[in-house]
Write a protein that binds this DNA or RNA. Structure first.
Lengths: 204, 204
DNA sequence: AGGTATAGGTAAACGCTGTTGACCTGTCAA
DNA sequence: TTGACAGGTCAACAGCGTTTACCTATACCT
């Protein structure tokens, strides 16, 4: 079966096209995840919203988690944020972005995925992503001794702020003076990156 | 039906006793959660391990999440940690505890629940718990201006460290000199508690 | 002691989930 | 026109948390 194409030329356009279907699923998934969060959206909901059969999700993305992995891979806000300027300004960039999120800035999708970042299926996805899109770029970007430790501490503050915002609503933080709060978070992030000395486990 | 009691007195002990059954479920749940994590343990697994009917979990705890809420309520490591000494030593206490966890210290149950702290059902449970067992006691304990902001920042670092440990294994942090790492985390927590000035949104 | 209300326990189903394998069918090249 | 095959469908699977209707051991009251 074919359908008339939009050009009015009389030619027909195939209804079965891999890329088109794949994109429909991706678009619907993003939209629904953004509205409801990952855990609350079922495969069948995505499929019916995309006007597509359920089985195709697993055909094209392996699993529901695979679908999310693909969405996150396309998104990639972390690496951009990290390499968006000189190292010495990284704490300021991250602090401003974090505080911005408290005030509802950032894409709907980002916010929704944060909101449901706990799902057990997501755990594995986020684990891979923390390394590939946060720790590793950061380590490479810092490019110095103990970079992994600095990166881990930075990631901890970053993720922790996200978590508090997510499960507490961030009301307490949002209520405070924005400039002062940003400065404080920036200071905390700078402390994460400050020199730690040589890591010698034998030395007390 | 009754069974002989352990005293050998010849008396019998009832087989149907609310508290006994409740406790059997709690014990089994703790054990299984500790081994496998929350998400991987089904209601039916808990029930069969406890030698009890599945429906009793919902009868006694409302839901599987309710069961976990009860377990966490009984546990309560947060409030103890917070009020375990003077305020000025709180950052040191928390830092030491956090680093201790990196090195596998803490109860099996704690570690396992941390490990599966992302489940969507747990999200609500943890949300209530973050407020009642962390923020609120901390706010009351600090008892000063902007206590909520300080508590939120502290909670962010604390939860963030937990999250990094959980999804990254904390290898990078564990590999570093323990004393120096503890000192750094302590400094970060102290920064969370440092005076912020008056929260005036109109003041740039 | 006997009768009986009820708390405690059970079995079977409900509707839902993600996933899979067997089966159609549109599309395109020979 | 015919065949091969990528693309799409359908129905079923096993599992989940939860609920409903039902049974029965227990304990109180006469």
């Amino acid at each position: 079966m074919e359908r008339p194409d939009a050009t009015g030329s009389g030619a027909t356009v195939p209804t079965r096209r891999r890329e088109v279907t794949r994109e429909r699923i991706l678009t619907s998934a993003k939209e629904l995840f953004a509205q409801e969060g990952f855990g609350s959206v079922s495969s069948r909901m995505i499929a019916s919203h995309a006007g597509v059969n359920v089985a195709l999700i697993n055909r094209y993305f392996g699993s529901k988690a695979g679908l999310l992995t693909e969405i996150l891979r396309e998104d990639g806000v972390f690496p951009r944020l990290i390499t968006d300027g000189p190292v010495e300004e990284l704490p300021r960039r991250l602090a401003e972005h974090a505080v911005g999120r408290l005030h509802g800035e950032g894409s709907t999708l980002q916010r929704a995925l944060d909101h449901s970042a706990g799902d057990p299926d997501l755990q594995a996805v986020y684990q891979g992503r923390l390394k590939s899109a946060f720790i590793e770029p950061l380590v490479e970007y810092l490019g110095r001794e103990n970079a992994e430790v600095h990166a881990s501490l930075l990631a901890a503050v970053w993720l922790g702020l996200g978590r508090v915002r997510r499960i507490e609503g961030g009301e307490a933080l949002r209520g405070h003076d924005r400039t002062r709060l940003t400065a404080r978070i920036q200071a905390m992030l700078e402390l994460c990156l400050e020199d730690l000395g040589t890591p010698d486990p034998d030395d007390p």
